[in-house]
């Protein structure tokens, strides 16, 4: 189905070195609108490095990035955000001392004029807008006036996701979004991923939980030691094949490594 459309994001031959170490070696991949791509690989395979290149944390040493068909240079996280690429890091980047809607509007607070003169925060507006986006995504949080501190891990994750959605993320990158969550909370986040994808948001998801990725991803990209070693449509593969790609086929077949 993706074949006929233009990819939202395309990276070509990305190389990222740290000193002598090649963390990402000539990796190419693309993501289509509304598509969920699972990025898999063992520890140190280069997954985080690759998405950090896309989200502007690192600059690639070689390679090109295309977004909506145009070549772009992403030199800072703000560049990425301006393009519509939002990244949800594992530490979530929420201000725990502020409430839900304040976090959704963090840095882009809605203001109103007091006495037509003094700009002050428009709490009512921010609250209503936040409610709308949470409803749209089917997220339940008792009250948006609650501080993040009082929320569960999954609820926090949802707030972080809603924030990027409210600000029109076209591509959402999630680095191990379910790692710290309990079973129920994991399921909620995965459902959220499906909802978003149905609404046309493209998503790159990194996870070590194969089961999770198989549930939500349309396509899987596997990295090993910085290189892309395979790419499969989810419905055309199975966990065993993916595992052998991740760890290197020769190991699974009982062969020896150099």
């Amino acid at each position: 189905m993706e074949g006929e459309r233009r990819p939202l994001l395309e990276v070509r031959n990305i190389v990222k070195r740290f000193g002598g170490l090649v963390a990402v070696n000539r990796v190419s991949m693309e993501v289509y609108p509304g598509e969920v791509v699972g990025l898999l690989g063992d520890n140190g395979a280069g997954k985080s490095t690759l998405i950090k290149v896309i989200s502007g944390v690192y600059r690639p040493d070689e390679g090109q990035i295309f977004f909506e068909g145009r070549e772009v240079r992403i030199t800072s996280p703000m560049d990425a955000i301006r393009l519509g690429i939002e990244t949800i890091y594992q530490d979530l980047a929420l201000a725990e001392n502020l409430n839900v809607y304040s976090n959704i509007f963090l840095g882009r607070e809605k203001l109103k004029k007091l006495f037509n003169l003094i700009p002050v925060l428009d709490h009512e507006y921010m609250m209503q807008e936040s409610k709308k986006v949470l409803d749209r995504l089917g997220i339940e949080i008792p009250s948006l006036r609650n501080k993040i501190k009082t929320l569960s891990g999954g609820q926090r994750q949802s707030v972080a996701i809603s924030r990027s959605i409210y600000w029109n993320a076209k591509l959402l990158i999630m680095d191990e979004p379910t790692a710290a969550l309990g079973v129920t909370e994991q399921r909620k986040v995965l459902n959220l991923v499906k909802t978003l994808s149905a609404q046309g948001v493209a998503i790159i998801i990194i996870s070590h939980q194969l089961y999770d990725v198989f549930q939500v991803a349309h396509r899987l990209v596997v990295l090993r030691r910085g290189e892309k070693v395979g790419e499969r449509l989810t419905h055309e593969t199975n966990p065993d094949e993916i595992v052998s790609l991740i760890v290197g086929a020769e190991l699974v077949e009982g062969g020896q490594r150099g």
């Binding site: 996280p77 703000m78 955000i81 530490d91 979530l92 980047a93 929420l94 201000a95 725990e96 001392n97 502020l98 304040s102 963090l106 840095g107 882009r108 607070e109 203001l111 007091l114 003094i118 700009p119 002050v120 925060l121």
Partner: peptide, 24 residues
Amino acid sequence: SKTQFGQHIYAIGGNIDAARRAGI
């Protein structure tokens, strides 16, 4: 308590990295 500047100060104190990434 009422202005954006005030709100940003709380955000900085709560999570300075989050505040930076939010463009404050």
